[in-house]
Design a protein around this nucleic acid. Structure first.
Ligand SMILES: [Mn+2]
Ligand SMILES: [Mn+2]
Ligand SMILES: [Zn+2]
Ligand SMILES: [Zn+2]
Lengths: 142, 142
DNA sequence: TTTGTATATGAAACAATGTTGCAAATGTAA
DNA sequence: TTACATTTGCAACATTGTTTCATATACAAA
């Protein structure tokens, strides 16, 4: 689905900033930070606009925010797999402590948790920290 | 264990800032932010010192950082329960989206995850978002 | 195609959070 | 009491996120 089609589907105006952020997230293999997105766009928009666009796209359910760390925030497109209707089967995120890479582990499903009576669960975020393949290989080499 | 005893145990110097941060975290029922801790201390130290103290205490394994949100960071003492030697049985954190409260759910243990070959897991952070007891009650009342 | 208007953007100004380098202060072991 | 490694405070800076308000624009209706 193209960025234009996505925005049409969600009844959102097709503004240049929204279209190019969506396009960039589609091309990107990994979740991207505000900084990375802004650099790629060559300052074609104000940072304020980015944050508002992100909020709009998140509220619509088109993208999601990954908070890997107190200083590491990334954004990625939502990929709806078949079991979307069933339960909110969210996926796990991986954060490499060596190279800082963040990955959406679409195939690793978040385990449901049971909290004491009186709590209402809305969402569950799981960040697994460790070393990615490349960083383990580099570690071996030296 | 008193703050003094803790610092002695971990071979760390007993400086006023470390002692008072530890004391405050011990008194506090819930995880605290830099802002909250600093307010309570009545500006008795520089913010820089706070961050360095936090890093020292985290590296020693005396406290842990909870990142509930891209704008919500709190700190809490580590409570070692009996099964500490076994495996790194970390606990789940709860974040109330209404009142912003963060809780250490010591009794809710983090489920282990299995990642594809080549990844090395070091740690796993789980943040469950939702409504806390008080906020659900308030919701009912109105 | 033109126009009206709700919506989105940009600018300025601000707040919060986190980091680095360096000189001065201090906790602790001898 | 002293020596010195460690810790702190200051200045200066970087990054991230928010609010207000005037201007620009996407798009539906004429
Ligand atoms: Mn993801
Ligand atoms: Mn905790
Ligand atoms: Zn890596
Ligand atoms: Zn609450």
């Amino acid at each position: 689905m193209t960025p234009t089609e996505i925005l049409t589907l969600y009844h959102l105006r097709k503004t240049p900033t929204r279209l190019s952020i969506l396009e960039y997230l589609q091309i990107s293999h990994l979740p991207q930070s505000e900084n990375e997105i802004h650099k790629k766009m060559q300052d074609s928009y104000d940072r304020i606009t980015f944050y508002r666009t992100i909020q709009t796209l998140m509220e619509a359910g088109i993208i999601h925010r990954i908070v890997a760390d107190n200083t590491t925030v990334r954004y990625a497109l939502n990929h709806y797999n078949s079991q979307l209707d069933e339960q909110n089967h969210d996926h796990v995120h991986f954060y490499c402590t060596k190279c800082g890479k963040v990955e959406c582990m679409e195939e690793v499903v978040v385990q449901p948790y049971h909290l004491p009576d009186g709590y209402k669960i809305e969402e569950c975020n799981v960040v697994v920290k460790g070393l990615c393949r490349q960083c383990i290989i580099k570690d071996h080499d030296r």
